[in-house]
Computed example of a mutant assay.
Amino acid sequence: MRRLIFLVIAASCVLGSAAATAAGTLTLCYERREVLPWRTLDGQGLNFELLREVSQRTGVQFDYRGMPWKRCLEAIKANAVDGGIAVSFYPARLAVGAYPGGAHPDRAKRMNVGGYMLVRRRGSAIDWDGKAFRHVDGKIGFQLGYSVGEFLRSRGVPTDEGSQQPEELAQKLAAGRLAAAAFGAADAQRLAHGPFSAQLEVLPVPLLQQDYYLMLSHAMLARDPQLASRLWNEVGAVRTSPAYARLEASKVEPEWR
Results as ranks from 00 to 15, higher is better:
F6G: 06
I9T: 11
I9L: 15
I9S: 04
A10D: 01
A10V: 12
A11G: 15
S12T: 11
V14K: 02
G16H: 02
A23R: 15
G24V: 03
T27W: 07
L28P: 08
Y30Q: 11
V35D: 13
W38K: 08
G43P: 06
Q44W: 00
Q61R: 15
M67C: 05
R71L: 11
L73M: 14
E74F: 07
A75I: 00
K77S: 14
N79F: 04
D82N: 15
V87Y: 04
Y90F: 14
Y90I: 10
R93K: 13
Y99P: 12
G102N: 10
A103F: 04
D106L: 11
R110G: 05
N112L: 09
N112V: 07
G114F: 11
G123L: 10
G130S: 13
R134A: 14
V136G: 10
G138E: 09
I140C: 06
L144Y: 08
V148N: 00
V148Q: 01
V148A: 03
G149L: 10
G149D: 07
S154A: 15
V157D: 03
P166T: 01
P166R: 03
E168L: 11
L169T: 02
L173Y: 10
L173P: 03
A180V: 02
D187T: 05
A188C: 11
F196S: 09
E201D: 12
P206R: 08
Q210W: 01
Y213V: 11
Y213T: 04
A222V: 04
R223K: 15
D224H: 02
Q226G: 13
L227S: 03
R230H: 14
N233W: 05
G236L: 07
A237W: 08
S241A: 15
S241I: 07
P242R: 13
P242D: 12
P242I: 07
A245V: 06
A245P: 07
R246Y: 01
A249F: 05
S250K: 06
S250M: 05
E255P: 04
W256I: 11
